[in-house]
Design a protein around this nucleic acid. Structure first.
Lengths: 109, 109
DNA sequence: AATGTTGCTACTAAATAAGTAGCGGTAATA
DNA sequence: TATTACCGCTACTTATTTAGTAGCAACATT
């Protein structure tokens, strides 16, 4: 699997539009969850795995590589942690979190 | 496949956190693209398929069902179109689009 | 020297997506 | 009427992605 990056054609689109690449990357199973967990605190491989419902190490490993390629996280002596870019992404997602709650309200009614 | 909805466990997470469900749904291949295209204009099945790089009808069909279940779009005599909820989602994604452009700049440098 | 923890690889199995053919319906056209 | 064309799809096979399990090699601790 190639890592979805914003300057190249993307799964589900050859438009190369950056947000499409973002959604391709973020939508890949576990990627959001990993960023979410690392936004709380740096974690080493096995702790991160535990927090992510004991996801399989093979998948975790490929995800970590993709997210590193995308410069959203990196590996440090303290464990994996978000880059500035990764942190800024998590901030931008706040409006989406609000939307999701509204969505929940409408779905369950 | 079950449709990811915000009030139930989610692919990649059993937290039930709405935003996780949102990302699970939106991240599924083609879903973002479909919403994107329908945000521009209502389209019938075959036109939508064409716009989405001639994606396979089987996948398109399952996507349309999921997105309908999620109340983000519905089928009308004029073709498929976004619900108010779907439109509001697209608006909330604007900050993310900006982020993605910044991301692109950093990746390609 | 034995035991435990680390990050990870190698492998198989299951789930999801892609791709292709074409059906049964409606509608306009000859 | 019969032909042609478009419509939303379904049925099917193949390819790609994700899940799951076992365990290795490196380092630390006891």
């Amino acid at each position: 699997m190639t890592t979805p990056l914003p300057n190249q054609p993307v799964r589900g689109s050859d438009s190369g539009i950056p947000i499409m690449a973002a959604f391709d990357l973020l939508g890949r199973k576990w990627n959001m969850r990993i960023l979410w967990e690392l936004n709380q605190q740096a974690l080493n491989f096995r702790n991160l795995q535990q927090r992510c419902n004991d996801m399989s190490p093979s998948v975790l490993n490929t995800r970590l590589k993709q997210l590193s390629d995308a410069k959203l996280l990196n590996s440090t002596p303290d464990g994996y942690q978000l880059t500035a870019l990764g942190k800024s992404l998590m901030e931008k997602l706040n409006p989406l979190r609000e939307w999701a709650m509204e969505w929940e309200a409408q779905i369950s009614s």
